[in-house]
């Protein structure tokens, strides 16, 4: 099925754009799904009942965003003549085939979100780093020429504003709390910092869509991100590490070993009982 109305012949460049848009949308979806999946592990195990509810709420918000992105990606895939994704079945793509039937190398999430939960400090810091980025991303995405992305970002921004506020407050609370909490959040900073830079390096699918104002140029977000981080870290009495080697590759499908386990668990039922309705 062609991607445009039949009166417009499909050009190669349009196809290329669609492919990149599919990749880009999947990247946005994978980021939010993997973080949602990880945060949800706290449900029932949080340090304080109210905070158990809060982190679970964030998980739910992210999952909702993931579903919106996957649904859009599925729509694009089903309309497209080329199938850039290896689907196990010839069935049309759905949010679930995309989440449950792609393997490790096809996921395009950044490495940050697949880093393990660790203690409360690490989970908090991961959330702060990500929400700070996501806030800037979604804010810019409201100017995207792609209507669907714009709509998803607009709705999600309200949620992310809260995530950023909540995680900022916790970074400050832990940094300026007790000696132990300060040590723990410092340790989290050291552990997570190698995964910060990847957020701000455009993948091919991001670069390709910048000129037509579809994607957000993530490189342009870094300064604002750093400004906010400095502000919060100052209040939290935390230092910002320098000269840390940056790991990347997640956005291109080169992940850490952990993602395989996350997917194995998440995809278990769909894999064990193929072609079933749940």
């Amino acid at each position: 099925m062609p991607i445009t109305n039949s009166e417009f012949p499909i050009t190669n460049s349009q196809l290329l754009i669609t492919n990149q848009l599919i990749n880009y949308t999947l990247h946005l979806a994978d980021n939010t799904l993997i973080l949602a999946q990880q945060n949800s592990e706290w449900c029932g195990h949080g340090p304080i009942l109210e905070q158990d509810i809060a982190i679970t709420n964030i998980s739910l918000d992210l999952l909702g965003q993931a579903r919106n992105f996957y649904q859009y990606a599925a729509e694009l895939i089903n309309q497209s003549t080329s199938q850039p994704i290896n689907l196990l079945t010839s069935q049309p793509a759905t949010e679930d085939t995309l989440a449950y039937l792609r393997d490790n190398r096809e996921f395009r999430n950044c490495l940050l979100v697949e880093q393990e939960n660790g203690d409360w400090a690490k989970t908090i810091l991961r959330q702060f780093v990500f929400s700070n980025y996501q806030y800037l991303l979604y804010e810019k995405m409201q100017d995207s020429k792609d209507e669907a992305l714009r709509a998803i970002a607009e709705k999600a921004l309200k949620e992310v504003i809260y995530h950023l506020k909540w995680s900022s407050e916790w970074v400050i609370r832990l940094g300026d709390g007790t000696e132990e909490s300060n040590q723990r959040i410092n340790k989290a900073v050291i552990e997570l910092w190698p995964y910060v830079d990847e957020l701000f390096i455009n993948a091919a699918y991001e670069s390709a869509l910048i000129s037509n104002n579809i994607s957000v140029d993530v490189a342009s977000l870094k300064n604002l991100w750093m400004q906010k981080t400095k502000e919060i870290f100052a209040e939290a009495t935390l230092g910002i590490p320098e000269n840390i080697f940056a790991h990347k590759g997640g956005k291109q499908g080169m992940h850490t070993e952990r993602l395989g386990y996350i997917l194995a668990e998440m995809q278990f039922l769909q894999r064990a009982y193929p072609n079933s309705v749940w």
Binding site: L33, S40, E41, C43, G44, E50, L63, R67, Y70, L269
Partner: peptide, 29 residues
């Protein structure tokens, strides 16, 4: 029930299960 959140078989079921278990936390409160 939290035991199955990570393995819920569809995104919709996952969302429903998370909010269900979260409700129980609210009831506890």
């Amino acid at each position: 029930e939290g035991n199955w959140i990570s393995r819920a078989p569809s995104l919709k079921r996952k969302a429903i299960l998370i909010s269900k278990v979260q409700d129980e936390a609210g009831h506890g409160l």
